[in-house]
Computed example of a mutant assay.
Amino acid sequence: MREQESVRTKTGKRKVIITCAVTGSVHTPSMSEYLPVTPAQIAEQAIEAARAGAAVLHLHARHPDDGRPTPDPAVFDRFVPRIAAETDAIINITTGGSAGMTLEERLAYPLKARPELCSLNMGSMNFSFHRAGRGIKEWKHAWEKPHVEGSENLIFRNTFSDIRSVLSSLGDAHGTRFEFECYDVGHLYNLAHFVEEGLVKGPLFLQCVLGILGGLSADPENLHLMRSTADRLFGRENYEFSVLGAGRHQMPLVTMGAIMGGHVRVGLEDSLFLGRGLLATSCSAQVLKIRRILEELSLEIASPAEAREILQTKGAGKVGFDG
């Protein structure tokens, strides 16, 4: 960890990693005309976000015809190699996919791509976003309304056995590191279990996900709770943490997280808005906004090379997609 500290402070300022989550699997085309759904749109928005300052690009795939979430490696292959060729960003592939996918489906592309970084949800949970559909009078595609309203009866599954499988098949076999997504305090204890078992080694990269119905709400007190709990479980010097605020909580919460010593995540997966009532026209617009806020707080943005050193990833030359 001392080496990481030197990287983060060599100019006298702490380095903050900006992650951009480009599209996700929750929002639908009817919610925003700016949501990227085709391979070309996902690639273009990811590339723009990297140029705006995102050192990490968190990627899901969608069916090109109607924007449905898909785990199909052939669809990922239509945009991931292009992003790798045109940016130096760390490419982070989801292992969460969508709650309706099996573990085998969710792992299909990560096992093929062998990326530097993958997201990993640290437990099973109720995962509801049915309220996001309120106010939508006309849906563009038939799948959208049942996808959104049906989430009230949705459980995202990631058992201890599932997590162990992901750690083994990606981490042990291919040297992939993980963005450990923790939606509640119990998820931190789940991660501590795997650390104690010797199945996870540092530096840990924790993503505190607040504001999802089924997890902790996006109250500032809950961010303090997550931070203090992680300190007790892992020791502050043994982990990096980042903050994700869902929906309208995005910018205030990630700014708070940065002030507390963390990294930040923005993107149209997490929020469709740039400000109150103002749709973000692109992921890069959110990246530029948080970058401006961070720089006005005298915080310095990490480059992809600096992010690799902080997170100790294996490097872009050891992945399974062309770039």
Rank of each mutant, 00 (worst) to 15 (best):
L170I: 10
F194Q: 15
H130K: 05
I93Y: 02
L191Y: 13
N121S: 15
A99K: 03
E104T: 15
L191V: 08
F127A: 14
N92F: 07
L167N: 01
T159P: 01
S119M: 06
G175P: 10
L120A: 01
H141I: 00
T176Y: 01
V166L: 01
S124M: 07
P115Q: 05
V148I: 09
S161M: 10
S161A: 14
N158D: 10
E104K: 14
G150P: 06
G133M: 00
L188H: 02
S124E: 03
R157E: 10
A132M: 06
G133V: 00
S128D: 05
N92P: 12
K140I: 02
L103Q: 15
V148W: 05
H141M: 02
N121Q: 13
S168G: 00
A108D: 07
L188A: 06
N158H: 10
N92Q: 13
F127Y: 15
Y183S: 06
T94I: 10
M122E: 00
R134Y: 05
C182M: 10
L191G: 07
F194H: 13
S119V: 09
G171R: 10
R177N: 06
K145S: 00
S98L: 13
P110L: 04
E181M: 11
Y189M: 10
S128A: 07
S151F: 04
M122F: 01
A113Q: 01
S98Y: 15
D162T: 12
G123S: 10
M125H: 03
E181L: 05
R157M: 15
H130P: 03
G135M: 11
Y189A: 09
R114D: 04
H187D: 07
L103A: 15
S165W: 09
L170R: 10
I91A: 12
C182W: 12
I90C: 03
V148F: 02
I91N: 09
E181Y: 03
H130R: 12
G150F: 04
S151D: 04
S168H: 08
H193R: 15
